[in-house]
Design a binder for these strands. Structure first.
Lengths: 223, 223
DNA sequence: TATTTATCGATATAATTTTATCGATAAGAA
DNA sequence: TTCTTATCGATAAAATTATATCGATAAATA
């Protein structure tokens, strides 16, 4: 009970993060396969080959998501899609607010994909009076000053932070004070929050480093 | 020699990816510390406390980057910054092209941070005639048809892909054909490339999944 | 019907990554 | 100068994650 929350018989185990990160990739792939309606069943071997993951790895990940397959055939494509949706909780949508309607914020507001993944960005906030009152991708832009009240009123749990470095901490503080539970931080600085608040920091520099080291290794190998 | 490339005595070892991802975070932190000029030396204990990483972990990561510290004092802040810069190769800039000047593409073009991390986006490409000829954050937008020739002429190694799902594979193919070495893929689909080409896929769905599972766990624990 | 085959599921091994331990060192205080 | 303390660096243990093995199963084929 301490580490593994439980509710109505549904247990949330501590899932390996790498597995968690791969599941959406399988999902996206399966959706494409399903649209192309090429087969009713699909095997780990095929998924692995197509996605450049070891088949055994795929099977283990799917086992974690409680998928059940049939020997010689594989997994039913439609069933597998639903299994993953259920497992990731994409059937009950979570609502979120976004703060900072710059280029990045607008890009996220316009990304239709999120709804598919159980996230619904309800509204956006900014301090710029020129943006307040407008709509971006069908989402209303409100003044950032209204954020705390709105978080409380709608009991929003996730805040998406797409503001410049200079105001990131300040906006995060406002969110926390209003009772937010999790912050998805796209700003280029680390933000400090009290214990218990979840922060997921999207750090492009980290990804870039991984890419360029791989590149350096590859170019060196050829030389 | 097979796995570890070598050139001019400089060895590129296979660095643990988690370490690689944390180094930029230390770097950003150290830069802030340096600007605030609070101390000449800094210890792993302090870095770890401030960044919510175990001090031992910090020390191991810094060891990988060849940093040397002094007992009782810690690491010289300025020296440490340079050590990380050297290690990550941020002193010799890599040039890149970006394809797809939508909201996300524009956000990346406007992100000043990249230059600090050794990446210089030289120009951008798009198929939209309305965008071609304009400038975004000081970078010229050229027609996508010119991409292959430009990659060859400038011997560009990194391509940044910020196009819609529908044209991602097509643009990736064009890059590969022109001789690109690595693709940083922000489009929401997996792209297929020949062996030897490096692809780093930025998948927001993966991050979102990690965030919402953590949130679910945390909400459950409280309930 | 018997045989072959592809694949799953469970279990076991290997590799990687994280965390802990402990002696060595140098600064600062007694 | 000697003692205490904070910290590094090296080495060791633990935890996590990835990969391999192998029997069981069900479809396809002979």
């Amino acid at each position: 009970m301490a580490e593994n929350g439980e509710r109505k018989g549904e247990v949330i185990k501590a899932i390996p993060e790498p597995t968690l990160r791969r599941l959406p990739i399988y999902y996206q792939y399966l959706k494409r396969m399903h649209d192309e309606k090429q087969f009713e069943y699909i095997s780990c071997t095929r998924i692995g080959n197509d996605l450049n993951v070891l088949p055994i790895q795929v099977r283990k990940d799917l086992q974690v998501a409680d998928a059940v397959g049939k020997p010689k055939l594989g997994y039913g494509v439609t069933e597998l899609i639903h299994t993953i949706e259920d497992f990731l909780g994409w059937n009950n949508t979570t609502e979120a607010y976004l703060v900072g309607v710059g280029n990045l914020g607008s890009a996220l507001l316009g990304y239709q994909g999120f709804r598919e993944y159980g996230l619904n960005i309800v509204a956006a906030f900014d301090v710029d009076e020129k943006k307040v009152g407008t709509e971006v991708s069908g989402k209303k832009v409100l003044h950032a000053a209204k954020l705390p009240e709105m978080i409380r009123r709608m009991s929003i749990k996730i805040g998406i932070l797409t503001v410049p470095a200079s105001s990131a901490q300040q906006q995060a503080d406002a969110m926390v004070k209003a009772g937010i539970h999790a912050i998805w931080n796209f700003s280029p600085v680390k933000i400090n929050v009290p214990p218990g608040i979840i922060v997921q920091h999207e750090n492009l520099a980290s990804s870039l480093v991984v890419l360029s080291k791989k590149l350096a290794l590859s170019l060196n190998a050829k030389a």
